[in-house]
Write a protein that binds this DNA or RNA. Structure first.
Length: 575
RNA sequence: GUGCCCGUAGCUCAGCCGGAUAGAGCAUCGGUUUUCUAAACCGAGGGUCGCAGGUUCAAGUCCUGCCGGGCACGCCA
């Protein structure tokens, strides 16, 4: 598929297409497809809106690229209603669009799409499963879990915007040896009253203590494993304790998700699959795919990767075997076209093995499985007890936001300052996790999350709120048929180019599973707006300019709203 | 040891399919408010794009090697 520099929404005149066709007439040796790939957007709007680099053609025709660019620019003929002028700059042929025409079209399109601009039917009829968040029960919700939660939630919204049917699954880590360990710890140092009062905190303390004590008493490990074996074989006491741990934990998680505005379509848990996993492993054994090795059951996966361990010596299942069973059940239930696992990069091998197993058994599915890894948060650790809790993050950022609100004194009495502070805090935290490309490790820094200036969530929220107030004060309704000729400022042109590109940004974000593409884009857009706003006063200007400006900034506002929503940063009307 | 990922300004990062002078934010310094919210805007300084080769008309971007950091490598998830 050819990637257009400017979007090609239905019924829109495609300016790039016109440039390509005009070039084709002058350079018939290149096909339309080749030209579409070659034509690019110059780094600076001053150089033009499209450019054709002449290097390749010059080489093929054994000509000087500069001369060739010169010749082409003289020979070419464009419709001046679309392309105002063509000029050679060195080895490039630069095209300058008829700004008024382009602007009129883009601004109208955005306005007429009423908050749906950027949506598409790309994924129509397709189902994508996004497995994300998936916290371990009995562990507090820390900044580490926040990343998968925030990235995954954003991906579900991005895919929905592109017309996919999305199923967001929270696959709880509610099974495994860790629970045996927790039970062992509870039997030694647990306190019933304490568990009732502060369940998460108590379980967390037990977890930390277990890992500390195991260093001096390694037999604890085996005792933990024994507990898990009892749990997996259905021992009543073990099951009832596990149930209690699980329920208390889920309650806490749900509070967090509500706070972040995140909703899951489905809650599953590893505990749903041990039986199915066991059956699947047995099946692989009878069919000779899996073999016994050192008392465990494994599947050799060739020289590229270590064998997949599917059943332990003590007969219990593993994460990998349960994942295998889970994907099977999901395929049958949802008939997905794609499944995304938003899980940290430390599990790359795990998912490589999962895919390799599927390739042996269900090669058609294997291609639909995609691990979406992300970098680690450095400087915090559950085991060492240096975890930063999401609760603390929220309260710190919100307190900071409240201070700022009181300093500025711009809110009137009808606006709830606590509500604004709450949204600013969430915006700061969420955006902080979606700012950079997923794969990068991030060093946790209080300074960074508590900063509301520059490339931050609150910066975007601020721009959004300001546009809203501006529009209220100007009091001119947005009309998509407004004459845009008064918008002859360089800043207005920069904004228009960005608005035109928004649908591509969403598509690219989905293609790469990178919400950060949207973060970067929104920061640029907000910055372009701020620049326009600061340099061109609207209130008190001519009615013609006011009308045109409302169309422009109204569009910025709706795209900001749309993009912020995709990220999970709450838009704020006044702040 | 083997495999995967990262390495761009003092710090945090952007840079799409290789293309025209490598861009932001923070921090530093200087400026902007009787007029649309200063959580903002404008300007200045600051870079051998980890190092060395290679491919190419053209390399931060592709390939190889090395260095530095992170992660993973059978009974955790």
């Amino acid at each position: 598929m050819v990637r257009a520099a400017f979007s090609t929404i239905n019924k829109m005149i495609d300016f790039k297409q016109h440039v390509v066709e005009a070039l084709h007439k002058v350079c018939p040796s290149l096909t339309l497809e080749q030209l579409t790939v070659l034509v690019e957007v110059p780094p600076d709007a001053k150089m033009g809106d499209f450019a054709f680099p002449c290097f390749q053609l010059a080489k093929a025709e054994k000509k000087n690229p500069k001369q060739l660019a010169e010749d082409i620019s003289k020979a070419i003929s464009c419709d001046t209603k679309l392309v105002e002028r063509v000029a050679a700059t060195g080895p490039y042929v630069n095209f300058f669009l008829n700004r008024t025409a382009f602007m009129a079209q883009i601004l109208k399109t955005v306005a007429d799409n009423a908050g749906q601009y950027g949506h598409s039917k790309l994924g129509q009829g397709k189902t994508v499963i996004v497995e994300y968040s998936s916290p371990n029960i009995a562990k507090p919700f820390g900044v580490g879990h926040l990343r998968t939660t925030v990235i995954g939630a954003s991906l579900t919204r991005i895919y929905s915007a592109l017309g996919y049917k999305v199923v967001g699954i929270n696959y709880l880590g509610d099974w495994g040896t860790q629970f045996g360990k927790l039970m062992e710890a509870y039997s030694r140092w647990g306190d019933d009253a304490e568990l009732a009062k502060h369940p998460i905190q108590h379980l967390y303390n037990l977890y930390v203590r277990f890992h500390k004590e195991v260093e001096t008493d390694p037999t604890l490990e085996d005792k933990g494993r024994a507990w898990f074996q009892k749990l997996e074989s259905g021992d009543a006491a073990a099951v009832s304790q596990w149930t209690r741990f699980r329920e208390e934990s889920i309650r806490e998680f749900e509070r967090m998700y509500a706070e972040l505005g995140i909703h899951f379509d489905v809650y599953e848990g590893e505990s749903d699959y041990p039986k199915a996993a066991d059956a699947a492993v047995s099946d692989l054994v009878t069919r000779g795919v899996a073999i016994e090795s050192e008392g465990a059951i494994v599947v050799p996966l060739g020289d590229d990767m270590p064998p997949a361990l599917l059943r332990k010596q003590d007969g219990t299942t593993l994460y990998l075997s349960r994942d295998l069973a889970a994907i099977d059940a999901r395929k049958k239930k949802y008939h997905f076209d794609k499944i995304l696992y938003v899980v940290g990069s430390e599990q790359i091998l795990h998912f490589k093995q999962l895919k390799a197993l599927l390739e042996k058994e269900q090669p058609a599915w294997a291609a639909t499985v995609e691990h979406i890894p992300f970098g680690r948060i450095q400087g915090i650790s559950t085991r060492k007890g240096t975890l930063v809790f999401l609760e603390d993050l929220l309260s710190e950022t919100q307190e900071r936001a409240l201070e700022k609100i009181r300093e500025a004194k711009v809110l009137d009495v009808n606006v709830d300052e606590n509500e604004v502070a709450r949204k600013v805090g969430i915006g700061a935290i969420v955006f902080n996790d979606l700012r950079t490309r997923r794969v990068k490790d991030v060093e946790f820094s209080w300074d960074k999350v508590l900063s509301f200036e520059g490339e931050t969530g609150p910066y975007l929220q601020y721009a959004y709120a300001r546009i809203g107030r501006l529009m209220e004060k100007v009091g001119v309704k947005v009309d998509s048929k407004t004459d845009v000729t008064p918008l002859n400022q360089e800043e207005a042109w920069a904004i228009t180019r960005m608005l035109a590109n928004y649908p591509n940004v969403i598509r690219n974000a989905a293609e790469s599973n990178e919400p950060s593409f949207i973060s970067t884009y929104l920061t640029d857009l907000a910055s372009a707006f701020s620049s326009f706003y600061q340099n061109h006063r609207i209130l008190g200007a001519s009615p013609e300019f006011q009308k045109a400006a409302m169309l422009l900034v109204g569009n910025v506002r709706s795209v900001l709203h749309h993009g912020l929503t995709l990220l999970g940063v709450p838009p704020i009307e006044r702040m």
